[in-house]
Amino acid sequence: MKLIQTFLLLAAVAMPFAASAADLQVTVVDGPPVPATLYLALFDSAEAMANNQALALQKVELRDGAAQTVFTGLPAGRYAIKSFADENGNARLDTNIVGLPTERYGFSNNARGRMGPPSFDAAAVPLDADSASISFRLR
């Protein structure tokens, strides 16, 4: 009996220290009007984004140029998303001869970069212990 009481006391004390998790609901608009697959990559740091080391990946179908998805169980922090609409089904962002994208792409915060992708700070959105919703456009 004493062992059970000790366990319950320890569990009650540790409960406030348990990591809280939140969900990030993402809506993407202005995609192509034809059926396409939307690829999304979630990053939790500038280094991860620069090295293309996504914390999580999602793939959803775009319908009428829009899609929704949820990244679940995220700890509080800042996150950036980059995405593209795969219009021809080859699972990659196609580019022209000079390296400019020929398929629609976008970043959280509708961030834009100069001569390349935007920085993590430009695209980062805060997520606290509560769940959040964001929306951004493809271009």
Rank of each mutant, 00 (worst) to 15 (best):
M1I: 11
K2N: 13
L3K: 12
I4E: 11
T6N: 12
T6G: 06
F7S: 09
F7H: 06
L8Y: 00
L8Q: 01
L10Y: 01
L10E: 06
A11K: 06
A11T: 09
A11N: 07
A11Y: 07
V13A: 14
V13G: 06
A14I: 08
A14E: 06
A14P: 01
P16R: 01
A18R: 10
A19S: 13
A19V: 12
D23Y: 07
L24Y: 00
L24M: 11
T27R: 11
T27F: 01
T27Q: 14
V28R: 01
V29Q: 11
G31E: 02
G31I: 07
G31N: 08
P33Q: 14
V34Y: 13
V34S: 15
P35A: 06
P35S: 02
P35H: 07
A36V: 00
A36T: 04
T37Q: 08
L38Q: 04
Y39A: 06
L42F: 10
D44N: 14
D44Q: 13
S45I: 00
A46R: 03
A48F: 04
A48V: 00
A50S: 10
A50R: 12
N52C: 02
Q53L: 14
Q53V: 06
A54C: 11
A54D: 12
L55W: 13
L57R: 14
K59G: 05
K59H: 04
V60Q: 14
E61F: 05
L62T: 00
R63P: 09
D64Q: 13
G65D: 01
A66S: 11
Q68S: 14
Q68A: 14
Q68Y: 11
T69S: 11
T69V: 10
T69L: 15
T69R: 10
L74H: 03
P75D: 14
A76F: 08
R78C: 05
R78I: 00
A80T: 02
A80D: 05
I81Y: 05
K82R: 13
S83D: 05
S83G: 09
F84Q: 07
F84R: 04
A85Q: 09
E87D: 12
N88W: 03
N88L: 00
N90L: 02
R92N: 10
D94P: 03
D94H: 08
D94F: 06
I97M: 14
I97L: 15
G99Q: 12
L100T: 09
R104W: 02
R104G: 09
R104F: 02
G106W: 02
S108A: 06
N109G: 03
N109R: 11
N109E: 08
N110S: 09
G113T: 06
G116C: 02
G116V: 03
P117M: 02
S119R: 01
D121Y: 02
A122S: 13
A122I: 05
A123N: 00
A123K: 00
A124D: 07
V125E: 04
P126S: 11
P126H: 06
L127T: 01
L127E: 02
L127M: 01
D128W: 03
A129D: 15
D130P: 07
A132W: 02
S133V: 10
S133L: 15
I134Y: 13
I134W: 10
S135E: 15
S135N: 13
F136I: 01
R137P: 00
R139D: 15
